[in-house]
Design a protein around this nucleic acid. Sequence first.
DNA 1: TCTGGGGTCCTAGGACCC
DNA 2: TCTGGGGTCCTAGGACCC
Length: 306
Amino acid sequence: MPSVTAGKLCPRGVFVTPRMSHYSAESKQIMRLVAATGAMVEQMSIDEAYLDVTGVIAQKNETRAESMLDCAPVLALARELKRNILAERQLTASIGIASNKLLAKLASDFQKPDGLTLIPDRDKVMFLRPLPVRAMHGVGKVTESILNQAGITTVADLQNYNGDLRALVGSFGPTLRRFAFGEDDRPLEPGESVKSISSEETFESDTLDRKILRACLRDQCSEIASELKRKKIGARTIQVKIRYGDFTTLTRQITVEEPIDVVEDLYRLACFLLAREKLVSRPLRLLGVGVSGFGEAPGRQLVLFH
DNA sequence: TCTGGGGTCCTAGGACCC
DNA sequence: TCTGGGGTCCTAGGACCC
């Protein structure tokens, strides 16, 4: 039963890269239209979202329950969404309709800028067969090469493979096998629950200039602190990331007892991490800070009574 | 492609506790 | 304590995604 839609929204002016601020403002407007469908929405990035339309469709069809079996209502909803986005924002959107995230995403990629593709469940195995393994969610360059070396280049090869994929791709094996048959039980996760926040910058030229580095680190810590404040959370783990001219990339992290959320604390810890092993002894190409391990924002005391 | 930025998840080793 | 095993937390790196 078609219930999940992945919408890929593409600006009509392909050659113009809008400024980020414009882009995110535009994104908000479009996500507003997406939300207006009444579907459950999980926003994946600035221009992508999954929708679970099961509820909306069921509501609309209370009177004729048998039509749940056909996909006309979902198609109608998708067409209306595309129409609204074009009318109100002058943008085209690609929409894929299928029974799960994996297939909905593949469907939305099927016709690039302005598509509407539906993959009925009975067709999914055949739809997947000709695709390269790289099309599978979670298969990147490294995994692709491992699979290719084992003679597996298409999803059909994956479907036909009799061996244990775990020997090739570790714990991803069973999931990859299910993906190859179009099975995907990843749930839709609405709302915003973040697990880490970070900020990093690549310099135009590698630098050892303490003034530049300190200013950069401070800005990044301040950016993160405001985000923590906005979300009313604190972080227990602080990480710094550096990259040298030869692309060697290192991270160092520390976990503290109490969640922190102020610039000074973040900055102090970041400096400490960099200083501890004298990491800034060669010019840096990149400097970054990140936080994770979120908990209650500091200042709020836990009270236990009985 | 001489390689941007913000994320998620997995792995593997070590510390520590029981 | 010349020694087992499991659980949890921390750390560092890497693959992958958008």
